[in-house]
Amino acid sequence: MLNILAAATTGAADAPPAWMGWLPIVGMIAIFWFLIIRPQMRQQKAHQAKVAGLQRGDEVVTAGGIVGKVTKVDDTYAELEIAKGVKVRAVKSTIGDVIKPGAAGAAAND
């Protein structure tokens, strides 16, 4: 009987601390933070900086794929000229990218 009690007390002493059970969960959260959440936050900040820095004359691509030249910038909207004499208003947050002046190059079928 004494041997059974001694074996039971040594088994309890060998158990890991309670915080060790949380260690894998904390590790997974850290991995998600550094691989998914943090880069996405950087992309958001870069996009917001691009949109905030819009100026008249910039060529942009909207989220819908419309390419146009900015003719007027407002707090919320940007007016884009998509063809000669054709202007549309777009919400600034839907502007996907600012095209660099030489990036468009010549059309493939010219």
Rank of each mutant, 00 (worst) to 15 (best):
M1F: 10
I4D: 12
L5T: 05
L5W: 08
A6Y: 06
A6H: 09
T9H: 06
G11V: 13
G11Q: 12
G11Y: 13
G11K: 12
P16T: 01
P16A: 05
M20L: 10
V26T: 07
G27V: 04
I29N: 04
I29F: 11
A30F: 06
A30Y: 04
F32D: 09
F32Q: 06
F34P: 04
F34H: 14
L35F: 14
L35H: 13
I36C: 12
I36W: 14
Q40H: 12
Q40S: 13
Q40K: 09
Q40M: 12
R42S: 13
K45N: 09
Q48M: 08
Q48C: 06
A49L: 10
A52Y: 08
G53Y: 02
L54E: 11
Q55M: 12
Q55D: 11
G57S: 06
E59I: 08
E59R: 14
V60L: 00
T62S: 10
G65A: 01
I66T: 08
G68K: 00
K69D: 02
V70S: 01
T71H: 05
V73K: 01
Y77P: 00
Y77E: 09
Y77I: 08
L80R: 01
A83F: 03
K84C: 04
V88A: 10
A90V: 11
K92R: 15
S93K: 15
G96C: 07
G96P: 03
D97C: 05
D97A: 14
V98I: 14
I99V: 12
G102N: 12
N109W: 05
N109S: 13
